[in-house]
Design a protein around this nucleic acid. Structure first.
Lengths: 252, 252
DNA sequence: ATCTGGATTTCGATG
DNA sequence: CATCGAAGTCCAGAT
């Protein structure tokens, strides 16, 4: 069953780890290092991280991740496209990752290495993700009556001077309608975004409405919508999955 | 030197891996699994990921990460605070992670396991990060003349009806000044944000200016600033680090 | 290369 | 718990 070759050193000696990492980098393997280290970063920002235990992950696409025992986010990293190097200096393993444009450099100095594994990962599958904002758009193009009776879509992703409008359409009285879709509760910045689109088209269309569509809206956002004469339409992203009962919208 | 105990199985048998993972979870270790798996997610969104090789990371704070050989971002994950479980079903290792509020569930079914390591990571260090937007604020509070001659800061993080203003101050002619700080090139949404703050205070102060401070500004954003009567002031975040030569601002 | 906006954003601060 | 905005955001798509 386990025909896959895992290179694994439990108590790595520095002279050997150096070699192993270099070879694994050449072979485009994913490399994982548990170790005690100090980290310096210099680039878009700059940072210093004192001595501690971390897990370092080197990916064949040039990604480098430094994970601590907490948090979803890496404490330090290099984005895809970086170049990784490694050497032994003063008896210590040093891993360096650089990229250009923007110029960025990460230096990891190991004071102890607990474990190294490296492996060729084969993965051709792509993630199928549902309930995105895009799916909300798909649903409304197909069933525009969910917005309101008589509504019709003219254009998806309409470009304006000031950004892209999710849906542009027309109501049963001939008003043009700008629709901004959100899969989460409506925030102030979402309202500002809609207002910006509205302003960019209000000179072009005399009868113009602006709708924001999402699962809910905060109090302040609702007030701001009212001030600007914009409207809110309730629609939860989970309603946009196939086979969902939409009868609650049917009296529109 | 290597007194740290690394639990490491190179060719894990499923009966043993089950036990090892359960024990490591109890002991709050960081667990890393290389394996071939299928993944289902159901929660804020939903997703399916077909058979492929991945690296799974389980953290003691309840974070779970699934990394493929590419990208900085995990292809699937659970945020901190989730609960991890593991079992053997149909001779296959299954790892499950759940959280409530919002309800989310991730199920990883392994068809092959290549390597497992688990380790107690000790890390008390905090990251020292420089060149943040906050540091730009620190500098301008200390040296307000960088904005312009005669400018003075009245308040940091001033709250308004429609959000928090980074800096609120006054110029040498008695105009009140709203300042929005950005460490990156100014985008349309940054301008919208400043406009929102400006609108929320323009009734309160008759002589009001709105400045946006950042390293550069896009053409569209510059136009939108002009339309609204708002202003741009150039300041790079790296200038906010200690010991930087600020003579280029000194004629202000 | 830049611009634009979404994201299972995450994260921290604040009320 | 909700709101708000930054982030070395990342990332995809469009120009």
């Amino acid at each position: 069953m386990n025909m896959k070759k895992v290179v694994n050193i439990e108590n790595p000696l520095n002279e050997k780890t150096d070699e192993l990492i270099k070879k694994s980098l050449r072979k485009n393997r994913v490399i994982e290092i548990f170790g005690k280290c100090v980290i310096e970063y210099e680039g878009r920002a700059s940072s210093h991280l004192g001595l501690g235990d971390r897990l370092i992950l080197l990916k064949p696409d040039g990604t480098l991740l430094v994970h601590t025992k907490n948090q979803r986010e890496p404490v330090n990293w290099q984005p895809p496209g970086s170049r990784h190097y490694c050497k032994t200096k003063d008896q210590k393993l040093v891993v360096i990752s650089k990229r250009k444009s923007p110029e960025e450099k990460l230096v990891i100095e190991f004071f102890d290495v607990f474990s190294i594994s490296s492996l060729d990962l084969v993965d051709e599958e792509e993630l199928e993700l549902n309930r995105s904002e895009e799916e909300m758009g798909d649903l409304l193009v197909e069933k525009p009556w969910i917005i309101e009776k008589g509504f019709s879509v003219i254009k998806r992703e309409k470009e304006t001077e000031l950004g892209y409008i999710d849906l542009f359409g027309e109501d049963d009285r001939g008003n043009k309608v700008i629709i901004e879709l959100k899969r989460k509760r409506i925030s102030l910045s979402a309202v500002s975004q809609l207002k910006r689109y509205y302003d960019s088209l209000k000179n072009k269309y005399t009868n113009l409405r602006g709708l924001i569509v999402g699962p809910s809206v905060s109090e302040k956002s609702k007030n701001l919508l009212n001030e600007h004469g914009l409207e809110f339409v309730k629609l939860k992203p989970e309603a946009c999955e196939l086979g969902t009962d939409l009868t609650e919208y049917i009296d529109n």
